[in-house]
Measured scan of single mutants.
Amino acid sequence: MAAAAAAGAGPEMVRGQVFDVGPRYTNLSYIGEGAYGMVCSAYDNVNKVRVAIKKISPFEHQTYCQRTLREIKILLRFRHENIIGINDIIRAPTIEQMKDVYIVQDLMETDLYKLLKTQHLSNDHICYFLYQILRGLKYIHSANVLHRDLKPSNLLLNTTCDLKICDFGLARVADPDHDHTGFLTEYVATRWYRAPEIMLNSKGYTKSIDIWSVGCILAEMLSNRPIFPGKHYLDQLNHILGILGSPSQEDLNCIINLKARNYLLSLPHKNKVPWNRLFPNADSKALDLLDKMLTFNPHKRIEVEQALAHPYLEQYYDPSDEPIAEAPFKFDMELDDLPKEKLKELIFEETARFQPGYRS
């Protein structure tokens, strides 16, 4: 834990890192770190609560700039109880001085990944967590956004079992017609939660990839272990087919990539493993919904509104309290091709509203 900075004593240090967030945020305490930044909790002297502050230093890398800009653009436009918001952003007053960006968010005690390492969940908890994931996802999908990296560590939890989806750095506007060349190379989302079509096709992607990830998360809540822990690309596919069985001819016809289709045709026939054999203690309604989410063919996979209306979630289902976005989200430009200098300018502009004396 960093010592509390005395008023006016300059930035606090946390594990050798400068955290320049005073005077409003003090009493910093280390939480963890990701690929390009550290997260601390801090005391907000204005709202009198502890908050989470993520320090991001992305400006050396085009990919990190892209992810940072995506996350900020999306989260500043989203407003939903099951999606983490941005409360404040701290950065230098000029673009030349801006080396880091500090993002202030609600402090959540833990995440689903940490929880599943230590606790076996009751059916009631599984049901409530799944409902909140789908409630947040309904809003995301209504904005025409794909999260693309749903996994237990991106689901934040607090002691009252509130759940918030975080990390929109890989999110995209849904565009089933656009052929994202190089899709697989830039697709760094965790393999275990990846839909089979991501490994088999490169053309376009749809909201059904997020539903697949939610199915993987439900299976993990039922058993405290990942359902498809593939060691590499082909191993991942083999794990999936080992449980779902061989795809039907109709399902194979959806695979545009001939090499991928021929690979699947070359494999020995596998039978589907019954879900109640894998999860003998699970609620039968939970397994019915799991089956509809972990469907090989993305066109037959359940959609988020149908999933919310499934009998497993009937005690929570309330369409009048499951809000959607006001308007579909649009990125003005494809960020993939922009140089990091341009992305830095866009991050600077996007964060201006939090600067003292800002006038829109």
Results as ranks from 00 to 15, higher is better:
residue 2 A to L: 01
residue 3 A to C: 09
residue 5 A to Y: 05
residue 13 M to W: 02
residue 15 R to E: 05
residue 16 G to I: 00
residue 18 V to S: 12
residue 18 V to N: 03
residue 20 D to N: 13
residue 20 D to Q: 01
residue 21 V to G: 06
residue 22 G to M: 09
residue 23 P to M: 01
residue 27 N to A: 08
residue 27 N to P: 03
residue 28 L to W: 06
residue 29 S to V: 04
residue 29 S to G: 09
residue 31 I to H: 15
residue 32 G to E: 12
residue 34 G to R: 11
residue 35 A to V: 12
residue 37 G to K: 15
residue 42 A to S: 14
residue 43 Y to W: 14
residue 44 D to R: 11
residue 45 N to V: 13
residue 50 R to G: 00
residue 52 A to W: 00
residue 59 F to E: 07
residue 65 C to M: 11
residue 65 C to F: 15
residue 68 T to E: 14
residue 72 I to W: 03
residue 74 I to H: 01
residue 75 L to C: 11
residue 78 F to M: 04
residue 79 R to E: 06
residue 80 H to Q: 14
residue 81 E to W: 07
residue 81 E to K: 13
residue 82 N to S: 10
residue 84 I to C: 03
residue 84 I to P: 01
residue 85 G to Y: 13
residue 86 I to S: 12
residue 90 I to E: 01
residue 92 A to V: 10
residue 92 A to F: 01
residue 95 I to M: 07
residue 97 Q to H: 15
residue 108 M to K: 14
residue 113 Y to A: 05
residue 114 K to W: 04
residue 115 L to K: 00
residue 116 L to P: 07
residue 116 L to S: 10
residue 118 T to M: 10
residue 118 T to D: 02
residue 118 T to A: 08
residue 119 Q to D: 01
residue 120 H to D: 05
residue 123 N to L: 07
residue 125 H to G: 08
residue 126 I to V: 12
residue 127 C to T: 05
residue 127 C to D: 06
residue 129 F to I: 15
residue 130 L to G: 09
residue 131 Y to L: 03
residue 131 Y to T: 02
residue 131 Y to Q: 02
residue 132 Q to K: 13
residue 134 L to D: 08
residue 135 R to E: 06
residue 140 I to G: 07
residue 142 S to L: 11
residue 143 A to V: 11
residue 144 N to K: 13
residue 146 L to N: 09
residue 146 L to V: 06
residue 147 H to Q: 15
residue 148 R to P: 08
residue 159 T to K: 09
residue 163 L to S: 11
residue 165 I to Q: 05
residue 168 F to T: 06
residue 168 F to M: 11
residue 169 G to D: 15
residue 170 L to P: 02
residue 170 L to G: 04
residue 173 V to M: 11
residue 174 A to P: 05
residue 179 D to E: 12
residue 179 D to Q: 05
residue 179 D to Y: 15
residue 180 H to K: 06
residue 181 T to V: 10
residue 183 F to V: 14
residue 183 F to K: 03
residue 185 T to L: 02
residue 186 E to Y: 08
residue 192 W to S: 11
residue 192 W to P: 13
residue 194 R to A: 07
residue 195 A to R: 10
residue 198 I to T: 00
residue 200 L to I: 08
residue 201 N to M: 07
residue 203 K to D: 11
residue 204 G to D: 08
residue 204 G to E: 11
residue 206 T to C: 07
residue 210 D to L: 09
residue 211 I to T: 01
residue 216 C to M: 07
residue 218 L to T: 11
residue 219 A to I: 10
residue 219 A to H: 05
residue 220 E to A: 12
residue 221 M to Q: 05
residue 229 P to I: 05
residue 229 P to Y: 03
residue 235 D to C: 09
residue 238 N to I: 15
residue 238 N to W: 11
residue 240 I to C: 12
residue 243 I to P: 05
residue 246 S to L: 06
residue 247 P to E: 07
residue 248 S to K: 10
residue 251 D to M: 06
residue 254 C to S: 15
residue 255 I to T: 06
residue 256 I to N: 13
residue 261 R to L: 15
residue 262 N to M: 02
residue 262 N to S: 00
residue 263 Y to P: 03
residue 263 Y to Q: 04
residue 263 Y to M: 04
residue 264 L to Y: 03
residue 265 L to V: 04
residue 265 L to F: 09
residue 266 S to L: 01
residue 267 L to M: 15
residue 269 H to M: 04
residue 270 K to A: 03
residue 271 N to M: 11
residue 272 K to G: 08
residue 272 K to P: 08
residue 272 K to I: 15
residue 273 V to T: 00
residue 273 V to I: 01
residue 275 W to I: 09
residue 276 N to R: 02
residue 277 R to E: 13
residue 280 P to F: 11
residue 282 A to G: 04
residue 283 D to I: 08
residue 286 A to S: 13
residue 286 A to E: 03
residue 287 L to M: 15
residue 290 L to R: 06
residue 291 D to P: 03
residue 293 M to G: 01
residue 293 M to Q: 02
residue 294 L to F: 03
residue 297 N to V: 10
residue 297 N to C: 06
residue 298 P to Q: 00
residue 299 H to F: 01
residue 306 Q to E: 05
residue 306 Q to K: 06
residue 307 A to Q: 01
residue 308 L to R: 03
residue 308 L to K: 01
residue 316 Y to F: 15
residue 317 Y to P: 00
residue 317 Y to H: 01
residue 317 Y to L: 05
residue 321 D to M: 04
residue 324 I to L: 13
residue 328 P to D: 00
residue 334 E to Q: 07
residue 335 L to A: 08
residue 340 K to Q: 02
residue 340 K to A: 06
residue 341 E to Q: 11
residue 342 K to Y: 10
residue 343 L to V: 10
residue 343 L to D: 12
residue 344 K to E: 04
residue 344 K to V: 09
residue 346 L to G: 11
residue 351 T to D: 02
residue 356 P to F: 03
residue 358 Y to V: 12
residue 358 Y to K: 12
residue 359 R to G: 13
residue 359 R to V: 05
